[in-house]
């Protein structure tokens, strides 16, 4: 079912999940997920509300455990090393695995220019003004935002439109040079034009980054992703991985009956 890590092309960065089970306090939210995310490609996580796809994503950069009662068992291997191993610092993990949230979250007191390099500066320890400015321009260009903000880098990030804010957050995540980018329904709060811009951006980034994107929108998953993972929670509300494969195959010739039912709109 899962793509085997040794079959992935050019496996420079390989992200593999083994028997991952996540809890909120005592309640199990997802159980026993095995999944190898293909390198330098976009994997879409789809499934109905409450199936655990966001929780799964949040386990990949250990932010799940940063919010109160989150707990995880199982392994997540990044380049063969378990990010949940006891000697691994979650802060170091998050520098290699960036994340973009459902709602754009520019930092309220920072200007666009400060915000976009805040990770580089406060997590990466870069102090040089010239290097920070250089990095800001580089990632804002990557995020197709440079031309729109180059004359107002000292304006607050919160003054931008929703779509621009989200591209700012993507640029910010790229500034620390991560290998993996996690996106949690990054377009769900945006209008169609801003959504199209973000999708275009995702495709342009996928050649350089391993992207894992949660989407509640099947058309979007079909448009942008190369691989798709379908998750489903049963009556006991524990999410499980039902099917994983190339997007084309999952959407046109699903192996599992439940996948077909979901994709054809019979539920969810």
């Amino acid at each position: 079912m899962a793509v085997r890590a040794d079959l992935v092309e050019a496996p420079k960065t390989v992200l593999v999940m083994e028997e991952l089970t996540a809890y909120y306090g005592k309640r199990m939210a997802i159980e026993g997920v095995n999944l190898a995310f293909p390198s330098k490609a976009i994997t879409a996580l789809i499934g109905p509300s409450g199936c655990g796809k966001t929780t799964l994503l949040r386990c990949l950069n250990r932010i799940h455990e940063a919010a109160g009662n989150g707990r995880v068992s199982g392994r997540v291997l990044l380049d063969g090393r378990d990010i949940y191993a006891s000697e691994v610092n979650p802060v170091a993990v998050r520098r290699r695995i960036g994340m973009v949230f459902q709602r754009a979250n520019p930092f309220p007191t920072m200007s666009i220019g400060e915000d976009v390099v805040s990770g580089l500066r406060y997590a990466g320890g870069v102090r040089s003004k010239a290097r920070l400015r250089e990095a800001a321009e580089r990632v804002l260009r990557l995020a197709f935002l440079w031309d729109e903000v180059k004359d107002k880098l000292n304006h607050p990030g919160t003054s931008l439109s929703g779509g621009q804010q989200q591209r700012l957050c993507i640029a910010r995540a790229l500034a620390t040079d991560p290998e993996v980018l996690l996106m949690d329904e990054a377009t769900s709060a945006l209008d169609p034009i801003a959504t199209a811009q973000i999708e275009e951006l995702m495709i342009s980034l996928s050649g350089h980054y391993t992207i894992v994107a949660v989407s509640h929108n099947m058309q979007q998953a079909a448009r942008v992703s190369t691989h798709t993972a379908f998750m489903l929670a049963g009556a006991e509300r524990i999410g499980r991985l039902i099917e994983f494969g190339e997007t084309n195959q999952v959407f046109t010739r699903p192996r599992e009956r439940q996948t077909e039912d979901y994709i054809t709109g019979r539920f969810g």
Binding site: I63, R94, R95, G98, Y122, T176
Partner: peptide
């Protein structure tokens, strides 16, 4: 979470 996700301590 946004700050933590950037790898800030």
């Amino acid at each position: 979470e946004g700050a933590l996700a950037l790898g800030m301590s």
